[in-house]
Structures are given as structure tokens and as C-alpha cells.
């Protein structure tokens, strides 16, 4: 294992994050605050409690998940797409590193950033609503797994994308709708039966449900199923990444 290389890639990716710290840090704080002003205070005051939890508190896990998923994808996809775009990928391909080391470096940094932003949102939320976390370790485990799996997913998108438009395509057309319809801001049980059934085909439902369970102890789907879903998604992404590097798909001619 070329740990030095993993460290180098990771540090360079993190340096990019710190270079744009204002953007990385302030924008999630502002957008979270806006969500609380709109959903928590303006609309939330007219909504009854959801499953015994005040609406303001109820949306916190969904809000964190929403941001963590989109940030994980965008950080990782940009991280690997940029060297492809400017040509510096030649160095990664000619260095004594294998696919695992490259992935750990890039996806690891992207997951770290997403995790950091998730925790920033959690802290910001605490300024607006009372938050109690019933299962803090489960909460962290879900957060880490989600950050990692979506960073891997973003890495795949970055390898696949041939231009900046494609880079935005899947996050915009697939991930954002799935996250919004995955119960970020509502409980699946609030939907009419037919939409509940449809919702269970949305993988994001399992992630948000499990994450919410770690906060409040209630969930739309059994917690075991949620864990299975996130583990399965992570394994699937790892499998695709392994295949990409074995075949050199879109990176090595």
C-alpha cells in the first residue's frame, strides 16, 4: 500500500477545500438557516408535530442528509473530473499507485468535507431547535457511511462525465429529486398509500429513515433494512470503481 500517495492525494484535495473555506463553510450555514426560517418558523409553526416531534427538529436529519449527499457527490466528482479535464491525470496514471489508493485519497477527502459540512449543519440547527440524539454512535455511523458511499458515487460520476454538463446531470436530475422525495422534509407515513409504496423504491428513503431513527428512535422502515441499504449501496459503488480501474474505462486508453 502506497500510503504516502494516499496522504498526498488526500492533502491536496483537502487543501482545495480550505482554499475555498468561506464557500465551503459559510454557504451551508446560510442555506441551513434559510431552511429553518422558511420551514421551521414560517411554515413549521402551522404544522403539527410529526410523529411526536416538532417539525423544526424533525427536518434536521433530512436537512443534514440532503446536504451531505449532494456535497459528497459534488466534491468527489469534481475532484477526479478536474484532473481529467486539465490533463494532470497523467501523473496519477503513471505513478506507482493502484485504484484503491486513488479512490481512498479522492473519495476520502470528499467524504471528510461532506462530513464536516454535515456537522456544521447539525451545529447550526442546534441554534434554532432543541435537538436530542438518542443513538449518537448510530448517528455517526450513518453519517460516515452516507458520506463515504456518496463520495464513491460522485467519484464514479466524475470518471464517467465527459464534460461539465454531464458532471451536473446526475446530481441534478436523479439525486436531488430522490433526496427531496426521500422524506427529507416529511414522513413517508404522511403520504397516500400508493405514494408510500412508490417511495419504498427510492433508496434514499432508507438512508434518511435510518438517520432519523438515530435521532428520534422512530423510522419509516426497519433500522436493519436501512443499514442493509446503505451497506449495499457502498458495496455497489466500490464494485463499480474496482471495475473502472481494472478496465481503465474512460481514463486509460
Amino acid at each position: 500500500m502506497n500510503l504516502q500517495a494516499v496522504k498526498s492525494i488526500y492533502m491536496v484535495e483537502m487543501a482545495r477545500f480550505f482554499r475555498t473555506l468561506a464557500q465551503s463553510f459559510i454557504s451551508p450555514v446560510i442555506s441551513t438557516s434559510l431552511y429553518f426560517v422558511v420551514f421551521g418558523t414560517a411554515i413549521g409553526s402551522r404544522i403539527d408535530q410529526v410523529e411526536g416531534i416538532s417539525y423544526g427538529a424533525f427536518i434536521v436529519p433530512g436537512l443534514i442528509m440532503l446536504t451531505v449527499m449532494t456535497q459528497g457527490i459534488s466534491n468527489a466528482s469534481f475532484g477526479i473530473y478536474f484532473p481529467k479535464f486539465i490533463g494532470t491525470i497523467f501523473e496519477l496514471l503513471s505513478a506507482p499507485v493502484n485504484f484503491l489508493e486513488i479512490v481512498i485519497g479522492f473519495a476520502g477527502a470528499a467524504a471528510t468535507k461532506a462530513m464536516f459540512i454535515g456537522l456544521v449543519i447539525l451545529a447550526t440547527s442546534a441554534l434554532f431547535v432543541d435537538i436530542t440524539i438518542m443513538h449518537p454512535f448510530a448517528m455517526l455511523a450513518f453519517l460516515v457511511l452516507t458520506c463515504v458511499s456518496f463520495a464513491l458515487f460522485g467519484f464514479i460520476i466524475g470518471i464517467w462525465a465527459k464534460n461539465f454538463e454531464q458532471l451536473q446531470l446526475i446530481p441534478l436530475l436523479v439525486v436531488t429529486p430522490l433526496v427531496f422525495l426521500g422524506g427529507s422534509f416529511y414522513s413517508i407515513s404522511m403520504l397516500p398509500p400508493i405514494w408510500q409504496t412508490i417511495s419504498f423504491f427510492n433508496p434514499v428513503v432508507y438512508l434518511i429513515s435510518g438517520f432519523r431513527w438515530s435521532f428520534f428512535g422512530t423510522s419509516d422502515v426497519p433500522i436493519g433494512l436501512s443499514l442493509l441499504a446503505i451497506a449495499g449501496f457502498t458495496a455497489l459503488c466500490l464494485g463499480i470503481v474496482w471495475w473502472i480501474f481494472r478496465t481503465g474505462w474512460r481514463i486509460r486508453s
Partner: peptide, 11 residues
Amino acid sequence: NTVRYSRGLFG
């Protein structure tokens, strides 16, 4: 930084 990065990449 970029020169140092290359060295690290090569382990």
C-alpha cells in the same frame, strides 16, 4: 506544493 505532491504520489 505541486512538486512536493509528485514526490508523495510516488511514495
